[in-house]
């Protein structure tokens, strides 16, 4: 139960960072934190039926559920792509305007 509460805290920290931080790089970190929280949630759930590595020829009885781990492998890859692209965009914005502050950028790029 404590583990779940901690995962929830991590998730909320991510959301708070995404909304409150004005720096684009910090927003990207916040997204990554949210994503990691969900990854941990899946892995935690998968390990509730056992915590041995699911290998052929292993000890047998108490394997973790391998499906959530397989899913999260994909979700991590997707998350890395998102972070990389977000950082690339932030870098291009910094090169164009010399700031990472989202409000400042909005003003400089003339958004209505």
């Amino acid at each position: 139960m404590i583990a779940r509460a901690l995962v929830l805290c991590m998730f909320l920290i991510g959301i708070a960072g995404l909304v409150a931080k004005r720096n684009l790089v910090k927003k990207t970190f916040a997204l990554a934190i949210m994503n990691s929280a969900v990854v941990l949630l899946f892995v935690l759930e998968g390990s509730s039926i056992g915590d041995e590595a699911p290998l052929l020829g292993g000890p047998g009885a108490s394997f973790v559920d391998p499906v959530p781990q397989a899913l999260m492998l994909t979700a991590i890859v997707v998350g890395v792509c998102v972070s990389a692209l977000a950082l690339a965009l932030a870098y291009r914005l910094y090169k164009a305007y010399g700031t990472l502050d989202v409000d400042e950028l909005k003003r400089l790029s003339g958004h209505e």
Partner: peptide, 20 residues
């Protein structure tokens, strides 16, 4: 266009958060 980078970033941030 630099404005397009910012638009792409907002789009990315909100839809990735939604995908979580």
């Amino acid at each position: 266009k630099p404005g397009a980078f910012l638009a792409a970033f907002s789009y990315l941030a909100i839809s990735s958060a939604a995908m979580v």
